[in-house]
Design a protein around this nucleic acid. Sequence first.
DNA 1: TGTTTTGTTCATTTCATATTGAACACTTCG
DNA 2: CGAAGTGTTCAATATGAAATGAACAAAACA
Lengths: 171, 171
Amino acid sequence: MPPVREEDEIREFPALGPLEAQVIHVFVDGMKVLGLPRSIGEIYGMLFISPEPLSLDDLVERLGISKGSASQGLRALKGLGAVRETSLENSRRCHYEADTELKRLVGGFIREQVRPHLESGQSKIGKLTESAEGEDDPERREFYLNRVKQLEHWMQKGRFVLPLLQKVLGE
Amino acid sequence: MPPVREEDEIREFPALGPLEAQVIHVFVDGMKVLGLPRSIGEIYGMLFISPEPLSLDDLVERLGISKGSASQGLRALKGLGAVRETSLENSRRCHYEADTELKRLVGGFIREQVRPHLESGQSKIGKLTESAEGEDDPERREFYLNRVKQLEHWMQKGRFVLPLLQKVLGE
DNA sequence: TGTTTTGTTCATTTCATATTGAACACTTCG
DNA sequence: CGAAGTGTTCAATATGAAATGAACAAAACA
């Protein structure tokens, strides 16, 4: 497998300059770490490095993605509070710009991506105790109940740590 | 689409009791959030809820996964420090048990999954400034340099927050 | 009203990644 | 030594999530 040269990466976005392409790569990687699709990274990166607000069709052209992707990506980013709509005068299209307040971004991510999973885990764990109680062998039952306790303890830590994170990262 | 009943989920693991199946589901979901493959969640979950250490073939049988998956999954879990090898007497096979110390788990995850990405992002961002300097229009250049600064600032926060996380979650 | 612009939806396709399983290496035993 | 037991590797495959794009609304014009 030949190594990927930087030029190759940049040709990925024929409509963009090197800086824009590099920034977008950073965000694509970042979003991947957070479990978000690459198109969302591309869109946010594009808006982040654009001095002017961009319309949906701007994104479609510059990134070479479909209208569907752009639409869905923008919806998700709005949900995260990562993108602001601005109604530019002398155009009836909607234009978007990146919101760069870390506190808001972290908050949105936690609200949309972390909390739901924590809560569903929470409810799953709630049902575990009764399953453990059903074990006949007392030694095993003890072990199982301990493990369930452990899980509950971890969840507790999780709930404790989230607001802390928000506070620390809040500028 | 008919709703998934709990029985259906449990039939997924014919060799397991309800408690084991439920616990494994919790870990599969959890690992998915962290971006790790389901087989790793299954293996760790199985070990977590097993009172005795299990061999590779135990995992293959009980979870219904391939030897290849089990082997690779165990390797990854060892890398994360989430699994301990114990050499059981009267068996020459290697047996494994879950390590449940949260501090160790968080540390392993940060070391294996988070740090590498942070560092690659770091180096990418390092190269951005020169690209921004290349912009001719002074107003745009100013904007670009500000955004790059912003990125650097975020990275800094990230590096600052990780050890804090480890400390807070350390039992 | 009909037409154009703008954006959304969702069945299909594409693509990245996880999983498989057969071949392989290494031990241990007889 | 050969045979059986144990675990790894990796090319091929299966799977699931994301991207596509055509059909569809909804609004803005003329």
